[in-house]
Simulated scan of single mutants.
Amino acid sequence: MFDTAAALALLQYGDSAYPAGGFAFSWGVEGLAADGLLEGQGHLDLLVAEHLEARWNTMDRILLRRTFAAPDLAAAAAVDRYAEAATPSQQLRDGSHRAGRALLGVSVRQCGPLSTSYRALISADARLGHLPIVQALVYRDAGIGLAAAELLSGWTLVTGLVSAAVRLGTLGHIEAQQSLSSARAVLETLLASEPARDAEPSSFTPLIDIAVSRGPSRHVRMFAT
């Protein structure tokens, strides 16, 4: 049966207008475009697929699932510390912190109990608040189940990447819709298979990591990552 409440929650939290600060992050799109490595829809489709397959599915998704299953906030914080240790790029760590804490702040203002308690728990440690961990807690506060939370996490990454490309002038709005359709197929395939219960978070996106890490050395930039 069609779950209207779940669908409406997905529409709300997956909306690009949701005020969680996602518009400030390109996750490598800007850097790759500046270096001439991202030209048009074909390149963007490959980049989105790489993000989904080699980082989100093997890293962020695993962290989100662990946090979703965490019995308490201390266990969630342990996953957060793992995320910190498993992210070698300072720029990616900082971006994940900023995006996560922005999302957490919105949920706190909506009086989410887990979000409110978690912000108090991590307030003294700037290393915590990574995006996948916060997503799990915020979506639990919103009554969103694990399967929908995974879909939402992957889809907000996709829309953020495509939106960044449009804002940079790399492609137009019609091409952006075509890219979103391509990304839907990739994400659907990934979500059809659950990660192994003992899967360890990992990622291998060297070009993206380099593009993000070079951000502070660029004289002009639009995005934080």
Results as ranks from 00 to 15, higher is better:
residue 5 A to V: 13
residue 6 A to K: 14
residue 8 L to N: 10
residue 9 A to C: 01
residue 9 A to W: 04
residue 12 Q to D: 07
residue 14 G to S: 03
residue 18 Y to I: 00
residue 18 Y to V: 02
residue 20 A to M: 05
residue 21 G to A: 02
residue 21 G to I: 03
residue 22 G to I: 00
residue 26 S to H: 12
residue 30 E to V: 03
residue 32 L to T: 01
residue 35 D to T: 03
residue 36 G to H: 11
residue 36 G to M: 12
residue 36 G to A: 09
residue 37 L to I: 01
residue 38 L to H: 05
residue 42 G to M: 11
residue 42 G to F: 09
residue 42 G to Q: 13
residue 42 G to I: 11
residue 44 L to H: 06
residue 45 D to T: 12
residue 47 L to F: 13
residue 50 E to D: 15
residue 51 H to L: 09
residue 52 L to V: 06
residue 52 L to F: 09
residue 53 E to I: 14
residue 53 E to R: 15
residue 56 W to C: 07
residue 58 T to N: 07
residue 61 R to N: 13
residue 61 R to F: 02
residue 62 I to F: 08
residue 62 I to Q: 08
residue 66 R to A: 05
residue 69 A to Y: 08
residue 69 A to G: 07
residue 70 A to Q: 04
residue 71 P to S: 07
residue 72 D to M: 08
residue 75 A to T: 13
residue 75 A to W: 11
residue 79 V to S: 09
residue 80 D to F: 04
residue 80 D to Y: 07
residue 82 Y to R: 14
residue 83 A to M: 14
residue 83 A to E: 10
residue 84 E to C: 07
residue 86 A to D: 14
residue 87 T to Y: 07
residue 87 T to A: 10
residue 87 T to C: 13
residue 89 S to H: 11
residue 90 Q to D: 12
residue 92 L to C: 07
residue 95 G to Y: 07
residue 97 H to A: 02
residue 99 A to W: 02
residue 100 G to W: 05
residue 101 R to Y: 06
residue 101 R to G: 04
residue 102 A to P: 03
residue 103 L to E: 04
residue 103 L to Q: 09
residue 104 L to C: 08
residue 107 S to F: 14
residue 114 L to K: 11
residue 114 L to Q: 09
residue 115 S to L: 11
residue 115 S to E: 02
residue 116 T to K: 12
residue 118 Y to V: 08
residue 123 S to G: 08
residue 125 D to V: 11
residue 128 L to Q: 13
residue 130 H to R: 14
residue 131 L to A: 13
residue 135 Q to G: 02
residue 135 Q to N: 14
residue 136 A to P: 11
residue 137 L to G: 07
residue 138 V to M: 07
residue 140 R to L: 12
residue 143 G to Q: 11
residue 146 L to Q: 14
residue 148 A to H: 15
residue 150 E to H: 05
residue 151 L to R: 13
residue 154 G to H: 05
residue 155 W to N: 04
residue 157 L to C: 12
residue 158 V to K: 06
residue 160 G to S: 14
residue 161 L to F: 07
residue 164 A to Q: 03
residue 165 A to K: 05
residue 167 R to D: 13
residue 168 L to E: 07
residue 168 L to K: 12
residue 170 T to C: 15
residue 172 G to K: 05
residue 175 E to G: 00
residue 177 Q to T: 03
residue 177 Q to R: 13
residue 178 Q to H: 11
residue 178 Q to Y: 02
residue 178 Q to D: 09
residue 180 L to E: 06
residue 180 L to K: 08
residue 186 V to S: 00
residue 190 L to E: 01
residue 193 S to D: 05
residue 197 R to H: 09
residue 200 E to W: 02
residue 201 P to V: 04
residue 203 S to C: 01
residue 206 P to T: 01
residue 206 P to Y: 03
residue 206 P to N: 01
residue 207 L to V: 05
residue 208 I to R: 12
residue 210 I to V: 15
residue 211 A to W: 06
residue 212 V to G: 00
residue 213 S to Y: 00
residue 214 R to S: 01
residue 214 R to M: 12
residue 216 P to S: 03
residue 217 S to L: 13
residue 217 S to W: 10
residue 219 H to W: 06
residue 223 F to M: 03
residue 224 A to I: 08
